[in-house]
Design a binder for these strands. Structure first.
Length: 483
DNA sequence: ATGTAC
């Protein structure tokens, strides 16, 4: 009977890279070190990771060490990481998990890295951490952008009294339900229309041509995971010169989604191309890049921009539908993407800035940073802080993994929290419950130097993917209305 | 994040 129980997460937290080495190391340690403490086992694993060459001939631990040794470096295309990484700034470090820090330290050792920063909502991701910002010179890293290319926030602000959300809750809930479609593979039977589907890129690359049909049917859908469409109260404390809205309360429509299957296929395709072209040590494998001077780099750039335009179109279709149903034009719209790569000038030099779960925060640039289904979100204005490479967090950041949230949060807890905040949830699982997220107020404190708050968004009617969790209030109303 | 997966 083994006393030792290691988890993959613990290995990642001490810097073990994604890949087969995690399960190999877990298996070996659970056999060879079964009577040792977890601390001892982790210390040994750390030591192997620090200098795998010292263990490569060890009869037992050598198997782990050889997984960590960058065999690819010996191959003809092999690329080594720098011994010392570039310096990067970390904002709100006390809220950032160790795994995310390790991933950023690895990214900082890439020979193409020019500058980096970690946002206060950072957590462990695939390749670059979520909340990671990385500037490179003349190369683009597909997994530095992420799988959901162009994922973004979009807010419409209407001149409607937000009290109506309480008074006519069922009317607004129906508007969201009718205008949106959630679900992992969700497609409309009758495709929406948008000029993005006529984009020339669809004809230029075979990959994009192949993705056109499904992309069309997914146009205007929201997907799954942390994506949402919600009504809430926009509160402007004082007029801001950039947002230019009089102080007051407004009705807001806020959406969060990305480029669906289109972006996902582009990301995975070009990551594979990059990984096969540039053999990096295992821990940096998924940070393989494409050179902007080669055809694949140009292709990725074209496809990435298409996915960005497509993600934007998805939001606009939803917002247009709802605005039409409300019979109003929004006073303002604020939109920003947070999974993308941009050509920007840094210290007088053009660089490619990858933001993976980070909000652009150049001087006077508006953005939206959401909290959770019950916590407030913020309309922000960038300060143009070079130390963060003109970036801020893209949300509160997860505190609990999806699996951990599902295990530890009960439906009753979520229901009580929704009632407490007077939020109606039209769909959404326990893995998206407010308790799974960091405290957004704390995260905002960690980035005071990066953004100014110009408005507040308080969610009231929230739609996400998944079975609706019923509040007592809405159950009562359903009975009253005979649903 | 993604409809069927190195």
């Amino acid at each position: 009977m083994s006393k030792l129980s290691l988890t993959g997460k613990e290995l990642r937290n001490i810097g073990y890279p994604e890949g087969p080495v995690i399960s190999i190391a877990m298996n070996i340690m659970q056999k060879a070190y079964k009577h040792e403490s977890k601390e001892t086992a982790l210390a040994v694993l750390s030591s192997i990771l620090a200098s795998p060459q010292d263990y490569s001939t060890d009869e037992i631990l050598g198997v782990i060490a050889n997984q960590l040794l960058p065999q690819q470096e010996l191959e003809h295309n092999g690329i080594s990481l720098n011994q010392t990484g570039i310096q990067f700034n970390i904002f709100g470090q006390e809220h950032i998990e160790e795994g995310a820090m390790h991933q950023m330290y690895t990214a900082a050792k890439l020979p193409v890295a020019v500058a980096g920063a970690l946002m206060p909502d950072a957590h462990h991701g695939y390749g670059l951490p979520i909340g990671g910002v990385l500037a490179t010179e003349n190369v683009v890293i597909p997994y530095g952008v992420g799988v959901d290319i162009g994922c973004r926030m979009c807010l419409s602000i209407f001149d409607i009294n937000p009290q109506e959300l309480v008074q006519r809750e069922h009317y607004f809930a129906r508007e969201i339900n009718e205008a949106t479609l959630f679900g992992s593979g969700a497609q409309f039977k009758q495709a929406a229309d948008h000029e993005v589907m006529d984009h020339e890129a669809f004809g230029l690359l075979p990959l994009l041509k192949q993705l056109h049909g499904r992309a069309w049917k997914q146009l205007g859908t929201s997907g799954s995971g942390n994506h949402f469409v919600e009504f809430g109260e926009v509160s402007i404390a004082e007029t801001d010169g950039i947002l230019q809205l009089p102080a007051g309360q407004y009705l807001g429509l806020l959406s969060h989604s990305g480029s669906r299957g289109l972006g996902s296929n582009i990301a995975n395709h070009y990551t594979k191309v990059a990984v096969s072209k540039r053999r990096l040590p295992l821990e940096a494998k998924n940070l393989a890049w494409l050179d902007m001077a080669e055809a694949e780099g140009q292709e990725y750039w074209l496809a990435m921009n298409l996915a960005g335009d497509y993600a934007s179109a998805c939001h606009h279709i939803i917002h247009d539908k709802i605005a039409k149903q409300l019979g109003r034009k929004p006073l303002k719209m604020v939109e920003n993407h947070h999974n993308f790569a941009w050509k920007e000038i840094l210290d007088g030099k053009e660089v490619i800035v990858h933001r993976k779960g980070a909000t652009p925060a150049g001087k006077n640039v508006l953005g939206i940073i959401p909290g959770s289904m019950t916590a407030p979100g913020f309309i922000v204005k960038g300060k143009g802080e070079a130390a963060s490479i003109n970036s801020a967090s893209h949300g509160a950041g997860r505190k609990l993994s999806r699996t951990k949230a599902m295990q530890s949060i009960t439906e009753k807890q979520l229901r009580d929290e929704l009632v407490k905040h007077n939020v109606t949830l039209l769909g959404g699982g326990l893995d998206e419950a407010p308790f799974a997220y960091k405290d957004i107020e704390e995260v905002m404190k960690g980035q005071k130097a990066l953004v100014d708050i110009v408005g507040r968004f308080t969610p009231k009617i929230v739609k996400m993917d998944g079975t609706p969790v019923r509040t007592r209030k809405s159950q009562k109303q359903d009975i009253a209305e005979g649903e």
